[in-house]
């Protein structure tokens, strides 16, 4: 019991919250970027532009089927070789965005495909262009259909930021490790804190999504 009281001293809690802040910053940035990039990529893939769509699709499949850890390594260790030399936080945002964009693209592609083909044809017959049909008729329905998948993908994103401890990203998990590494009596209190903090963030994200879903749709 004493361990718990000592472990949750203000100094330690503040250190954990600093880590949580980095986790949130990286998550929010990556969610925004990967939602935009992923939707674009998904549409490109759906549009079946000769060669271009196939190449984009192949790259998406490669990224999607690799463990995130490898994407993190390639981004942080590999990108400087082609002239981009990101610091740790931009590097983490880039790695998460690359991986999650590919995942979102796949969700968007199957979301669009799930909309009845007849609707596009009907829209075309009514004089809309292909792009208008996609934008006005298909996408709004598709986005509604794929909201649950997107939300759980973004929750995964928040959780997966913890993997970036391996490149010493100063986020929540890493800060907890620094604390229990300096005093191993704090292992259990730190894991309890980790579980609670991640749970709060992820669960509120899903509650927020529910709220938006109900009030916007």
């Amino acid at each position: 019991m004493q361990n718990f009281i000592d472990a949750y001293s203000w100094i330690n809690v503040r250190f954990l919250l600093q880590g949580l802040w980095i986790t949130i910053v990286i998550s929010v940035a990556s969610i925004v970027i990967s939602f935009i990039v992923g939707t674009l990529l998904g549409i490109i893939r759906y549009a079946k532009i000769k060669y271009f769509s196939a190449i984009v699709g192949f790259i998406i499949d490669i990224i999607r089927n690799l463990p995130l850890l490898l994407i993190i390594f390639f981004t942080y260790f590999g990108l400087p070789n082609i002239g981009i030399k990101p610091e740790i936080i931009p590097a983490a945002i880039m790695a998460m965005s690359i991986f999650e964009s590919a995942m979102v693209a796949e969700i968007v592609r199957s979301g669009i495909n799930s909309i009845d083909k007849g609707q596009t044809e009907g829209a075309l017959a009514n004089g809309l262009t292909r792009w208008q049909a996609l934008r006005i008729i298909v996408l709004p329905q598709a986005i509604k259909n794929m909201t649950p998948a997107l939300v759980s993908q973004f929750i995964s994103l928040v959780k997966d930021t913890s993997l970036a401890t391996i490149i010493v990203l100063p986020e929540l998990m890493y800060h907890a490790q620094i604390i229990y590494g300096q005093n191993t009596n704090y292992i259990i209190p730190m894991f309890v804190a980790l579980a609670v903090l991640y749970f709060i963030v992820c669960y509120s994200l899903s509650l927020l999504a529910d709220y938006l879903h109900r009030h916007l749709a």
Binding site: S152, I155, K159, D160, S162, L163, T165, M173, I187, I188, F191, L194, A195, Y198, F199, C202, Y203, S206
Partner: peptide
Amino acid sequence: VFRNIPLLVITMAFFLI
């Protein structure tokens, strides 16, 4: 509970605790 906690946290907890 298991959907909203990172896999790394769960695994490390099993390994260490």
